[in-house]
Nucleic acid binder design. Structure first.
Length: 481
RNA sequence: GUUCCCAUCGUCUAGCGGUUAGGACAUCGCCCUUUCAAGGCGGUAACACGGGUUCAAUUCCCGUUGGGAACACCA
């Protein structure tokens, strides 16, 4: 029998990082086994489900490149079928109508809690004749859960788990308004979608036991379960907004690459020997649900950032340019110089951990960051703080800049290696430190003390732009002193 | 509170009775060097605790402690 898995988020918010991992594991398992990866939107909670959230989930999955098979299933559209199943169970005597009010149920839970028991429904209407039913109350349908014995589930991740059936209470299948609950819907949908493996968050583990009996009551095959541990925040508690339980979209906005996120999420709770950098192809080949760890893992942003740097360095230059183009265009009008960014990409991507950084560092190719277009002058203010250290030695800097200009003016060929060779020769001749000469030029050309190799930058700019920036800064410094 | 799950460096993890307990991120040195990265080399750093079982326990069993999850007419 071929594998069918599904990712079934409820559209009550964005797709968070934990959901993304659940989706990834399902997707990998499907691709690994050559099975199907289905998507089901669990929108039975009409109050909290939004179109916005549905769109966000689709967008996030697409961005992560976790493509699903078949059309997505919207659970609410199948509500009639779900209700039908509930009614059939009543007819078979496997479920019953319950007329308890919300207040009564709350009271019941409080009483159990006071006695030190698990709060749950006490089965008041389980064996009570319908003739006793109050007139003006619309009933819910409850499932008759077994009251004795034990239930055993062999979870693919958690192993064999046994619970006492006294833990199970009679869960609501159909609400008073006739809409199905999650417990009913999942089971019915998973059955009709022919899902063979239910891979989901650990928080559903206890649900599996209740669902198990529902499968049995319907005489359906119980799927394999795999409950993967949740992701925790850096402090070990449940991941919340405070920790970075952000939407996938927000990680995109922070400049992360989808392949970096996939790799990070995969390694969180799963490993393959000493492999850290794992391509998607390798992941598909290696992934097995059986060796997913059982303990929850903490989310470590530093490791994600590091991994992102690795993937940026590996990425194609054109693709990176396209990734940062919107950010660059936001920042400057000089779109004609994008080819310079592309030429400089090898030097730039070596130094960036995120696409934001990459865009930041690339800006100088488009315009000199410390040159203010409006006033047609340089500003010290916009230069980074380090510059001040060098600006203290203005006279020296003017001198070095002039030496460089004189040298570069004689060049016909603006080749990277040639520039380096000649500047080194000059420094040796005049007994100057290469760093002393290079740093003022770096500030003049890139507006910062941090940049890719200056010789590379110069060769990319070419003679005119290089000398023009050097001269402009020289003049600015002269005016200062 | 009740039930279930979990436990190796700060973090993610390898280990599946006998290892100098390995790797990665982070961190700290050094090297390389025009800055910053990247890279190279090296350092600090872990088997929660207590009982068993065994010739031998990080590894198997039990308990303690500590963490987590679930207990809705939410999903």
């Amino acid at each position: 029998m071929s594998v069918v898995v599904r990712f079934a988020p409820s559209p009550t918010g964005f797709l968070h990082i934990g959901g993304a991992r659940t989706a990834l594991f399902n997707w990998l398992y499907a691709r690994h086994t050559g099975g199907k990866f289905l998507l089901r939107i669990e929108d039975t909670d009409r109050e909290r489900s939004t179109q916005q959230a549905i769109d966000a989930i689709f967008e996030s999955l697409k961005w992560l490149e976790l493509n699903w098979d078949n059309e997505p299933v919207f659970q609410f559209s199948r509500a009639k079928l779900h209700a039908e199943v509930a009614k059939q169970l009543v007819e078979k005597g496997l479920a019953y109508y319950c007329y308890c009010s919300v207040d009564e149920l709350t009271k019941m839970r409080e009483e159990s809690l006071a006695k030190g028991l698990t709060p749950r429904y006490n089965g008041y209407w389980r064996d009570r004749p319908v003739s006793e039913a109050p007139r003006n109350v619309s009933p819910v349908i409850r499932f008759k859960a077994p009251q004795n014995g034990t239930t055993i589930i062999t979870d693919l991740v958690q192993g064999r788990i046994e619970i006492d059936n006294t833990q199970l209470d009679d869960m609501v299948l159909l609400r008073a308004d006739g809409t199905p609950t999650y417990m009913l819907s999942v089971v019915v949908d998973d059955h009709y979608m022919e899902v063979t493996h239910v891979i989901r968050g650990d928080d559903h583990l206890t649900n599996a036991f209740r669902q198990y009996h529902l499968y049995k009551a319907c005489q359906w095959t119980v799927p394999e379960f795999a409950h993967i541990p949740l992701i925790h925040g850096a402090d070990g508690t449940k991941l919340s907004k405070r920790h970075g339980a952000l939407g996938v979209e927000q990680y995109k906005d922070m400049g992360f690459l989808p392949e970096a996120i996939r790799n990070y999420l995969l390694r969180l709770g799963w490993s393959h020997g000493n492999s850290e950098i794992i391509s998607t192809e390798q992941a598909i080949k290696w992934f097995d649900i059986h060796n997913v760890g059982r303990a929850p893992a903490r989310f470590d942003l530093q490791k994600l950032i590091n991994l992102n740097g690795v993937y940026i360095r590996q990425a194609d230059n054109w693709r990176l340019l396209e990734d940062i183009r919107p950010r660059l265009e936001e920042r400057t009008k000089k779109r004609t110089k994008m080819n310079l960014v592309l030429k400089g990409m090898n030097g730039l991507k070596e130094r960036a951990k995120t696409l934001i950084e990459l865009a930041d560092h690339a800006t100088f190719y488009l315009e000199c960051p410390i040159f203010d277009d409006k006033n047609d002058t340089y500003t010290q203010k916009s230069a980074d703080d380090n510059n001040n250290r060098y600006l203290a030695k203005v006279a020296n800097m003017i001198n070095y800049l002039q030496i460089l200009i004189d040298l570069l003016t004689t060049f016909n060929n603006f080749d990277y290696l040639l520039i380096e060779e000649e500047i080194r020769k000059l420094c040796k001749r005049q007994e100057l430190k290469v760093g002393d000469v290079v740093m003022p030029a770096r500030i003049a050309i890139t507006g910062s003390t941090v940049s890719p190799s200056l010789f590379e930058v110069m060769s990319i700019f070419g003679k005119d732009e290089t000398i023009s920036r050097l001269a402009a800064y020289r003049d600015f410094l002269s005016a200062l002193s």
